[in-house]
Structures are given as structure tokens and as C-alpha cells.
């Protein structure tokens, strides 16, 4: 183990969502200043999927985000930024490569599991393997970490960093690391925004499987009505809890990223000089407010643990309303053009 000290001068800015934060902070290090909503929008981070046949701890997979890594990859691709990614079989090799990067002064993104992340609040430590951090130095055998969720720079031991980089379970990170190799002098932000928006519209409207996007929301609503009868009170209430945890998990900025996306649309309106996007942003805010209403109704179910059949129906009604609203939003948004 080498004992050298490295400390990259890195501006740590907390964000709602870890991948936005890591991406935005890394870009900022190379003088590309983009806000969290902007990174989220360009990366087409808004999504919905409901996959009842895939189970996580016995509960169906519900997700409000695309596959981990997508936001970083799309941003760098759309902005013409050259990146390098690695994954490893060998743990020591993974740590050595990281050390070499730090020695060269390159802040390096790592995909990690949160269960053994020592500085994380205990109530949030599940076996969740898609957390993003940026390693920015090492000192006295400890690594210095810019974790977008945390207010300041955190420290983690060699042993613990190796452990979280090689967390096991669903989607093991396998030591994955990524960093920026080079940036193009002139990147086309406007075009990147338009591409980001078009992709979200596609993801939310056009995937021909009813588990994704607006169709996925409708499908979940339909299933939800049957949960109490089909699963029994206890299980149905756990299903409901799962949906709310995913909707409001750390980093969604509230309401399954809908508010961050509305913030992005405001920025996009300014950047592209297309004021109509402000109206769409308002509509997205309303959709977000409805998601919050949904969470409150769902909350009544798992707080009391009582049957409350009518609450499942009410929650499903809200979901259908949301699906309708979001469908309208993306049908309008997909006509976006560079002025």
C-alpha cells in the first residue's frame, strides 16, 4: 500500500441525487459549470418502470430512474467529453488504478455499495449497489471522498473503500470507476438539451412494453387496485411502502425527480430562449405535486396497517391522473426543436 499524500483541489457541491452530483462536480472540475437539474435533463434522468416479476427482497422492482451510469454517460456523450471507464476482477488492481489516478491529480468517480459505507447514516444503509462517489485524495491511509449526498468531504479507510467498491448482491459494482480524459473546446449545450429532452419523451412514451414510462404508471395503477385482495393486507402494505421508498428515496429531490425535471425545464427555457418550456415546467410541477399526494395516501396505508381498501383505490386513481398529465407533457415536449 503506498502511503503518499494526494489532495486534489476539488469543489464539492452536495446534490439531491448522487449521479447528478458526481457528474456535475466532475464536469465542474474541468470548468464546465452545469447545475444539477441541467445535468439531470441532459442525461434524460426521468423515467418510470414497474417490473412485478423482478423481486428485490420479495418486493416488486419499481424505479424512477434509468440504469445507473446512464446520466454520466449521456452527459459526456452529448457534450463531446472524452471519458475512461474501468471495471475490475482483481481488487488490488482496482485500488492500484485508483491510486495512480489520484497521483496524476485526476478526480475519479467510483460506483459503490452503500451497506458498508461507514460515514452513511445507519437507517439508509441497505445493500444498494448503485451509489456514486468521487475520490479526490488520500492521506494517512484514508481516502478523501466527495459524496454528493454528504455536506462535506468524507474519509474512508483503504479496507472499507475496497469493500464498498466490491460490494456483492444485485448489480455488483465490480470496482467500476470512471473519469474525464479530455473535454472539447466547444461543446453544444443547446443541442445537448434538445437531445436530452427528446430521449426522455421516447423513454416515457414509446417503449413498446407496458412496464415502462406512462404505460408503466397505468399498469401499476391497475395492479395496485388488486393488491389488498391478491396479496393480503400485510404484503399489500409492504408493496405500497416499496413504491413510496423508491419515489422518495434519497436524491430524487422530491416526487420521483419530477421537481428536478421541472427545474431543468425552466433552465432549458432560458438557455434555448423558448418560453413555452416554462409552461411545461409548471405542468411538470403539478404532476410532482400529485405524486406527493399519492405518497401521502399510500402513507396512510402503511402507517396504520389496517385494511383500507378504499385507500388503494384512491392511490390508483391518483396514479391514473398522473399518467394522463405526464402523457400530455411528453406529447408536447417531443416536438422540441433547436428554435
Amino acid at each position: 500500500m503506498n502511503q503518499n499524500k494526494y489532495y486534489i483541489d476539488f469543489q464539492h457541491k452536495p446534490a439531491a441525487h448522487c449521479e447528478n452530483g458526481a457528474t456535475s462536480n466532475l464536469l465542474n472540475h474541468y470548468n464546465i459549470r452545469l447545475s444539477e437539474p441541467m445535468v439531470f435533463g441532459i442525461g434524460s434522468g426521468l423515467f418510470f418502470s414497474y417490473m412485478p416479476f423482478m423481486k428485490l427482497n420479495g418486493l416488486p422492482v419499481v424505479s424512477f430512474r434509468p440504469w445507473p451510469g446512464t446520466i454520466f454517460n449521456r452527459n459526456t456523450r452529448r457534450l463531446g467529453i472524452e471519458i475512461q471507464r474501468y471495471k475490475f476482477r482483481d481488487r488490488k488492481e482496482a485500488m492500484k488504478m485508483l491510486d495512480e489516478n489520484l497521483a496524476k491529480g485526476i478526480p475519479t468517480g467510483c460506483l459503490v455499495g452503500v451497506y458498508h459505507l461507514t460515514y452513511f447514516p445507519p437507517a439508509y444503509r441497505f445493500h444498494f449497489n448503485a451509489h456514486n462517489i468521487v475520490v479526490i485524495g488520500r492521506e494517512n491511509g484514508e481516502y478523501l471522498v466527495s459524496d454528493p449526498i454528504m455536506p462535506g468531504i468524507e474519509r474512508i479507510s483503504y479496507h472499507d473503500l475496497e469493500r464498498v467498491r466490491f460490494a456483492q448482491g444485485t448489480q455488483p459494482p465490480k470496482g467500476r470507476m470512471y473519469f474525464i480524459k479530455g473535454i472539447s473546446e466547444t461543446f453544444d449545450l443547446k443541442n445537448a438539451i434538445v437531445e436530452g429532452i427528446k430521449q426522455v419523451c421516447k423513454d416515457m412514451l414509446e417503449i413498446p412494453i407496458p412496464l415502462f414510462g406512462v404505460k408503466g404508471i397505468r399498469y401499476m395503477a391497475k395492479q395496485m387496485r388488486k393488491w389488498p385482495k391478491k396479496l393480503g393486507e400485510r404484503k399489500a402494505s409492504l408493496y405500497m411502502g416499496q413504491v413510496v421508498r423508491m419515489l422518495e428515496e434519497i436524491g430524487t429531490g422530491g416526487a420521483g425527480f419530477r421537481f428536478i425535471y421541472a427545474a431543468f425545464l425552466q433552465e432549458a427555457a432560458r438557455e434555448l430562449n423558448q418560453p413555452w418550456l416554462n409552461e411545461i415546467s409548471d405542468e411538470m410541477t403539478q404532476a410532482g405535486d400529485r405524486w406527493r399526494e399519492f405518497a401521502i395516501i399510500a402513507g396512510r396505508i402503511f402507517k396504520s396497517r389496517a385494511g383500507q381498501e378504499e385507500n388503494y383505490q384512491a392511490a390508483a386513481d391518483v396514479l391514473l391522473d398522473i399518467a394522463g398529465r405526464e402523457e400530455k407533457i411528453f406529447l408536447k415536449l417531443r416536438h422540441i426543436k433547436l428554435s
Binding site: 452536495p14 446534490a15 439531491a16 437539474p37 460515514y119 452513511f120 447514516p121 449526498i149 454528504m150 455536506p151 411502502g241 416499496q242 413510496v244 421508498r245 422518495e248 428515496e249 434519497i250 429531490g253 422530491g254 421537481f259 428536478i260 421541472a262 427545474a263 425552466q266 415546467s281 410541477t285 406527493r292 405518497a295 401521502i296 399510500a298 402513507g299 402503511f302 402507517k303
Partner: peptide
């Protein structure tokens, strides 16, 4: 240990970052 961040509208209708201590349904979940 950290504050969760929420995006919300200020009085002029612009989105800003607002720290939140928690949201009851989320905490209950």
C-alpha cells in the same frame, strides 16, 4: 448527518434548492 435536498418554487416562481429534514410518508416507508 446530511440534509435531503428538495427542489421547490420561490415566490417568483423560480426553482430553488430547499433543504428538508424529512417527509413523513417517506420516513414511515
Amino acid at each position: 448527518l446530511f440534509e435531503d435536498i428538495c427542489y421547490a418554487l420561490d415566490d417568483d416562481g423560480h426553482y430553488v434548492v430547499v433543504p428538508t429534514t424529512g417527509f413523513q410518508p417517506k420516513t414511515d416507508a
